[in-house]
Each structure stands twice: as C-alpha cells, then as structure tokens.
Design a binder for these strands. Sequence first.
DNA 1: CGCCGGTTCGCTCAGATGAGCGGGAGGTGT
DNA 2: ACACCTCCCGCTCATCTGAGCGAACCGGCG
Lengths: 318, 318
Amino acid sequence: MSTPETAQGPAELVLTASVARRYYIDGRSKVEIAQEFRLSRFKVARLLDSARATGLVRIDIGYPGSIDVGLSGRLQEELGLQHAIVVDTVDEHPASLRSQVGRAAAELLSEIVAADDVLGLGWARSLMAMRGSLTSLAPCSVVQLTGALSRPDVDDSSIELVRDVARIAGGPASYFYAPMIVPDATTAAALRRQPELARAMERFASVTKAVVGVGGWDPPASTVHDALSPAERKALRRLGVLADVSGVFLDEEGTAVEAPLTQRIIGIRAAQLHRVPEVIAIAYGPEKAPATRAAIRGGYVTGLVTHSSFARALLPNG
Amino acid sequence: MSTPETAQGPAELVLTASVARRYYIDGRSKVEIAQEFRLSRFKVARLLDSARATGLVRIDIGYPGSIDVGLSGRLQEELGLQHAIVVDTVDEHPASLRSQVGRAAAELLSEIVAADDVLGLGWARSLMAMRGSLTSLAPCSVVQLTGALSRPDVDDSSIELVRDVARIAGGPASYFYAPMIVPDATTAAALRRQPELARAMERFASVTKAVVGVGGWDPPASTVHDALSPAERKALRRLGVLADVSGVFLDEEGTAVEAPLTQRIIGIRAAQLHRVPEVIAIAYGPEKAPATRAAIRGGYVTGLVTHSSFARALLPNG
DNA sequence: CGCCGGTTCGCTCAGATGAGCGGGAGGTGT
DNA sequence: ACACCTCCCGCTCATCTGAGCGAACCGGCG
C-alpha cells in the first residue's frame, strides 16, 4: 500500500542491480551483459527498464558549479531564450547577487563572443560587476549603446566600461562623451548631429551582441527612473511604461513606447535594439521580474543572466 | 586546483544539462535531440560523454528495500555464488538479524523454487526464522536432510519445519524420526537400515535445492558443536574441522573431513550434499564467516543469505 | 609566411538497440 | 474439460549508436 515496490523477489532484484551496474556504471553493451548473465538481450533491456521504473537506478543531473542548470534550462525553453544562466544563490543580498550574476555574465560573454562580433554595452551597475569579473574576451569591437548617467553612488562612467571591455578584448572601442538624458529634444538632436556621436551611433546597426541591464517602473528599480523628475515619471507611467532597456521604454506587452522623453535620450533606439541578434540582460532582484518579462516578450531581450529567485519569479509556474 | 571542473562556459554547461535531461530523463534518442537543438548527433554524443565525465549526470543504483544490492552483487560475483542476498542491517542484535535474514531467505525461496524442485532442508534456528516468514511456495517436494537436534531453548523440531514448509508449498513431505547424532556408528547404521529412514534418505539424491545453516568451529558457533562432548570437539578440531554444513564437516579449504563422528550422524552425506545443484546457506553473525567461506570454497554452498557486516567480513577487501 | 601539433567536427559502417509482433505457458471462469 | 485471458519471452526489422577516420580549424613557432 504505502510502498508501490516491485513485486519481484530478492534474487531478481540483485540480478537487476548487477545488470544495471554493468550497464550504467561499467558502460557495457546490453549484448555483452546478456552473454555474461546468460540472458537474452531483450531480458536485459526489460530488467534495465524495470530498474529505471522502480527507482533502483536513479539518474539526476547535478550541479557541479554555482549554476542551477535545471532552472537555466527551463527558463531558456519556456521563455524561448537563446541563452539563460541562473546562478544558484542562497544569499539574497543585492551586492552579493550583483557580483555573482556579474561573474556569470562575464563567463557567458567570454564564451559566446567571437572575434567577428560587435559587442554593444548598455549602462547598469550589473554591467560594472560583469566587467569586474571579465578576464578574457575575443578581440571584438565594443560599442557604447547609451550616454552616461551619473549617480552619486557610482563613480564609474559608461565610457570607462566600454574602454575597459575593449581593452580586455583587445579590439577597437566605439564610445562617445554625452549624457544619457538631456533637458530637451532639440539639444538631443543637436548632440546626435555631432560628428563624434553620429559616428558612434552609426555603429548601432552593426551590433551583433549586446549586454544590457533592465530597469523596472513597477516597482520602480531603474537607474533611468531615478534620474527623472516626478512629473516625468508620471508621464511615462501614464503611457504604460513598465520597463526600460538601455533607454528604450517598454509597456507590459514588451512593445516600445514612444514617449516625449524618448526624444531626449542619447543612445540606441528601440528599432535598432530590436534588430540586434542577441541581447543579453543581466537582472537581479526579483522586483524587476515584470520588467524583464516584458522585455523578453517584446523580443528586446534574447538572453538572460540572473539568479534563482528571479528565475522562479519569471517562470509561469513555480 | 581543488575543482577539476569543466573548462567550458556556462552556456555550454546549460546546453549540456538540457541535452542530458532530454536523453536521460525524457528518454529521447540522440538523433531527436540533435534535431531539437540543431546539433549533429555526434555533438550530442560528445556533450553526453562530457556530462558523464564531469559528473554533471550522476547515476547511482539505489536501495529501494532492505536489501543491499551492491554488496549482494559483489558477493555473488566475487565468490562465484549462484545467489547472494545481503540484508542491509543497522541493528546487529542476533535475534533481529536472524528474523531479517530469515525473511529474506523466505522471499528468495518463494522466488526460486519451482514445482518440479525437490527442496532439502537442514536444521538451524535460521531455518526456523525463514519458515516463520514463508508465506507462499511452489508445490514442490520437501525433504528432511538431517535428524533432529534438540536444544533446551528451541522447542520446534526439525520435523515440524519440514512439514510446515511442505504444507505452505502444498507438496509432499519426506521426513523421518531420528536424532541427528547417535552414540555410535553401529546404532547409526542400524537406524539407517530402517525402512522409514532408508526411504527418506533415498530422496537425498534427487534434491535439487537445499537450504542449510552453517556452523563454525573456530570460533565455535554451531548447534552441532554445542551438542558434543569436549573430547569429541577436540577430535574434530585436530582433524582441521572448521565448519559444519548440515552435519557435513569441512576443513579450511572446504574439503569434507571424514571423522569418526561422521559415522554417527544421521543425515545427508558430503558427496550427496555436494551433488545438490543449489545449496543456500543462511548465515548471520560475522563470527561464522570463516566457516561459510570454507563451505563456499568447497562448493558445498552455492547461495548465501546474510547481512551487511557478514558480507563485508566475507569479502576479500572491505 | 608556411609548417606543425592539437583539437574539433562530421562522415562511414558495423554493431547495438527499440518497437511491435506472435507464440507459448500458466492461470481462470464456465 | 474447454475456451479465454494475461503475462512473459524472444523474434524481425528499421533505426540508433559507437569506434575510428580524415578534413578543417586554430594557435604557436621557426
């Protein structure tokens, strides 16, 4: 009743276990095993089936490192991502999360970036953390995707990021000196016409891989959000903006929202970002899950590096 | 240094894990997996190999019941036994051991005895324990192999055992009323000529499976040993007797020893026992390991039901 | 610039494997 | 006693899989 258990006797059980060991541990073929035990190969196959069915043989996919491969795989499959890396975290402290996720992102980048790639970088603290762990990279071009957004608590600038990564890669860097948000659309347009910026922004079209942070509006957790006035925030919220990805505003469905503020942003535009074949978001802190979901839904993000609780928050069921 | 770890990046790791899940858990073929992931089937094979090699996929053979299948298998293989059942015991109390081992023996008997078998039964407390757990048996003949050996602490007689088992099996019983050891060879010879005994003993030759206990002389742990006088014990020891199996005395090599006492025993003879295709010993209490080893070495025992510490004592290494 | 050891990749082909089938043994109801 | 049923076994055949091989690629090094 309580134990479904196999009805077979102990001799068969021992035989089954021995066969299973020969097959799974010693790696012998069923034909060999059949000869050794004087069985038909069909009998061997049936014994192995029953060993699997009854739980005599247990196979589990382990976690030799800090990456939760199970969650990663589910995330990748269920959200249709090209890459998904979930760091298995117990410590949920933001700084710890950021460094672990940043390290995973650095490893991912080392792995998937080739010399002929053009790597676009957004601006986020998580990207800084990534750079901190980045030790090697194929000699690709590195492109700055947005202007700088100064924060009192972060002294690194966006430009430093791009130059550092380019230095590690040993490839050319495309960067420019401009703020991410300017006071009005006219200033922005003027800035964009500057030869230096115009040249840098031409390169957006050739970006093949990008790494970005994701900012959330609801709940608010975005570097961009923090830089705005209450009125500006309210305006965006009225337009249904839920997320920002490298200065691109998205609603719940992941559709790009053209806000007045959009005109004042110096950086890659929605259409260009959408055309980048691979956009990897680094996201931590489960409160950003809705924003990230929107970005993925809209196709603005095709890869994700995050941590366990975030992944679970993102997944439809558990 | 401390972690040999795979040198591959996280994306490959996740891919490998996903492929491994498809293959090992979902049971898909490598060809299918190759199509799903847009890989060659060779690549899939290599990923799976690396998953095994790096420990990403762990396969272990479990223990759903109380039987230690690993030890059982080793015992069976390394000692060349036809059957070996090792009960996984934590409690080493003799009575508990006896009942657990007895139960396993009962299950083994239910499993391997067929209607056309002739089942011989020796005399030992462990056989009593087996009978207590025996609930079903093919309708075979049951044959008493030795006379009775009364002990103050055991009220069941050998004959009861044979009749009980025959009743459970629903087959004919062959038994006789005689003591196991008689005072002299002449009395024994006279007894053996009795029609009743002679008829019963004729059946020894047709026994196809037997269950026996094993008695040890060094250290002493045998029902037979206990029934002897100090002088008799000394005589046997001088002849190199180390074990008794159903009244058959064996030396360290497992060779049958013809002692004066042998003539005084009513029961199956060494040569006849040796011809029984399958002799299963029920043994518990590691002190009997040397005796059991001798019995197996000599080919008098071809199957064993025992417990963990006994099995380990029996095995050459660990 | 060309050579070379090492590595990865995908091919061929023989051998291994799984799905499905039919046949026989043993149990069951009439 | 008979038909029926179910389980278990081993067959065939199409497919899958592993071992070994050569081609292509890569990163030094002369």
